[in-house]
Amino acid sequence: MNLNVLWFVLVSVLFIGYFFLEGFDYGVGMLMPFVGRTDTERRAVVASIGPVWDANEVWLITAGGAIFAAFPAWYAAMFSGFYLPLALLLVALIVRGAALEFRSKDAHRRWRRTWDGLIFFGSAVPPFVWGVAMGNILAGVSLDRAGDFVGGPLSLITPYTVVGGLATTGLMLLHGALYLGLKTEGEIRERARRAAFRVGGMATALYFLFVALSYFYTDFPQKLGVDPGVVPILAGLAMVAVRFLLLHERYGLGFLMTGLTIVLSVATVFVDLFPDVLPSRIDPSFSLTVYNAASNPYSLHVMTVVAAIALPVVLAYQAWTYWVFRQRVSVRDHFHY
């Protein structure tokens, strides 16, 4: 494996980490106004992700930094091309972070209600935007010879990409509901379980719709870079299994299944893309690939050494924090948020 491919894999791993970890954060944020019926319950819901959400978000920051460092032309084309959607994503992330930190710091009703609404907004928008973005990347975007996006913001919204956005949102909602099943107890857990039932069917249907539409809107069935084989099938099966696990209140396994769906789906997207990183619809020869978008070998080499040392350490201490905060959150807790 050469370094260009290795960095493509590393970027995929960072995105997988981001979608898996922030996925449940977003789900919890979206569910918070619904499964928390009292203020204390809402504080418990926020506390369930309190110690970890900020660190989870760093996976996205790192993915952004890694794309910049390893594939500058991809970074430049994607972020200037998806300009307004990306700005919307950033507004959502900014608002959400502030809202999670600030909501419980003042007792006024309007204060808390406003931030609660913003937590929902800030948690629902990112999965949707990423789903739309993934749909666009899979379908190819209007990249010109210089690698600049020439399509205009409205060209990013198609039925296919909107379904992608909804499917991603549904999947993360479900992922968050199962996380709440794992991390909370009593009423909150029961409401999260019922919410998972309510949205689970829809989320699964949207997910399969998106997969099916991919056959019409993208050319990947014809030009698969690498055959993903059984990966997407497994992802779909995992999604179906969640319903049965919920029936038997097996939250741990259920959470593993939504997690598996996320991991395998994101992996499939990247495997499908390879060796492209941003395919051009105008002319395939304008597509950005792991080779023409990459930094020089020396730069990739330096980055590889840093990542090889740092990533295992990061994984170790992040895993350790999940162990430290493994206990369930209860409404009887003393909250820091």
């Binding site: 930094g65 390893a70 032309a73 930094s295």
Partner: peptide, 12 residues
């Protein structure tokens, strides 16, 4: 990006 991106990624 080839030069400037690396410190940003390392920072993260």
């Amino acid at each position: 990006g080839d030069v400037f991106g690396a410190p940003l990624a390392v920072e993260a």
